[in-house]
């Protein structure tokens, strides 16, 4: 792997709720090389968004990072004070969400929003110059620069998502975390955005964390893939081996049960059961109640993450 840009060690993020403590990210570790795209996949509720938010230290309450380290460009983000974090957010690490409306102010023209983002991080820049940079960015992302005058509701879903990408890129962030960036879009607009991200990856040497439940999108874009199940990382590998030789039984089941448009004769397999409750997760391997290969030790001992093949990490007693 190239230079390591981001590394998480034994990261733990909990939500204290009335029903109990939801351990949404449970002793997770992973690395991201500079310039790579890491696909983070897993079913709804497994902790993907929580993990993404924790990197920016923006886990929504009652969520809290309760343990571990997040090392970004050599520095531990969990040791920074709030003022230092504010500088990092947006300028060095930025995030793109599923629903752009949550970040766009309905009463603010998108041009003003982008200009403000530029000027808060660079007090020296003139407004006219910032506006010009915003125009260039929009043009680069395939939106007519005159749309800077528009309010968010005047844009289509696809255009709003492009504006989010503009906000993420305008300060040359080193790391972009995209959480389900195309999930609410139609398939053609989704493909347009994915093509755009593909291009930007190259042009800006982006390091991209792509969070999604869609294995197709990850296959289009990711260099490496990390699979989460019930708040745990269960498998991490380069994209090709992960799809062609998945090792964790959960990854295997997931890949067999997703629809594929290619017209090969193939049936859609089913995976029994449903993801567990994160307040009282199963003992041992969390996947054991649904695993077709379950052994006695799976029920008792939690399998550690091991490098089973070169650059292919799996947490499963089968290996």
């Amino acid at each position: 792997m190239a230079e390591i840009l981001l590394r998480a060690e034994d990261l733990e993020v909990y939500y204290a709720t009335r029903a109990g403590v939801v351990k949404a990210v449970d002793r997770v570790r992973f690395e991201m090389g500079r310039g790579e795209t890491l696909g983070l996949v897993g079913e709804s509720g497994c902790g993907k968004s929580t993990l993404g938010f924790s990197i920016l230290r923006l886990v929504p309450p009652p969520g809290k990072i309760v343990g571990g380290d997040i090392i970004f460009a050599g520095e531990n983000l969990l040791e920074k004070d709030e003022e230092e974090m504010r500088k990092i957010r947006g300028s060095r690490i930025s995030m793109i969400f599923q629903d752009p409306m949550t970040c766009l102010d309905p009463l603010e023209r998108i041009g003003d929003h982008i200009v403000e983002t530029i000027t808060t991080h660079d007090q020296g820049i003139k407004r006219a110059e910032a506006w010009k940079r915003a125009e260039e960015m929009l043009d680069r992302l395939g939106i007519d620069p005159s749309r800077l005058e528009d309010y968010p509701h005047q844009l289509s879903g696809g255009m709003r998502q492009r504006v989010m990408i503009a906000l993420a890129l305008i300060l040359n962030s080193e790391l972009v975390i995209a959480d389900e960036p195309t999930t609410s879009l139609d398939v053609i607009v989704e493909a347009q955005i994915l093509d755009l991200l593909k291009q930007l990856k190259e042009d800006y040497e982006l390091t991209l964390m792509l969070i999604t439940h869609n294995m197709g999108i990850v296959a289009e874009l990711a260099d490496r893939v990390a699979v989460m199940y019930a708040a745990k990382m269960v498998e991490v590998a380069e994209a090709l081996p992960l799809y062609e030789k998945p090792m964790h039984p959960y990854t295997q089941g997931l890949l067999r049960s997703i629809p594929n448009i290619s017209l090969t004769e193939q049936v859609l397999a089913t995976m029994p059961g449903s993801p567990p409750d994160l307040i009282r997760p199963p003992s041992g391997c969390r996947f054991h109640p649904r695993c077709p290969y379950v052994k006695d030790e799976c029920k008792e001992i939690e399998p550690p993450m091991r490098e089973v093949e070169r650059e292919h990490l799996v947490a499963c007693h089968l290996y």
Binding site: V187, I188, E190, A191, L194, N214, M215, G216, I217, V218, A219, E220, A222, A239, L240, Y243, L255, I258, N260, I261, S262
Partner: peptide
């Protein structure tokens, strides 16, 4: 053609 295929070889 816009539907993403879960196969990195099919990019």
């Amino acid at each position: 053609s816009a539907v993403p295929v879960p196969n990195p070889r099919a990019r």
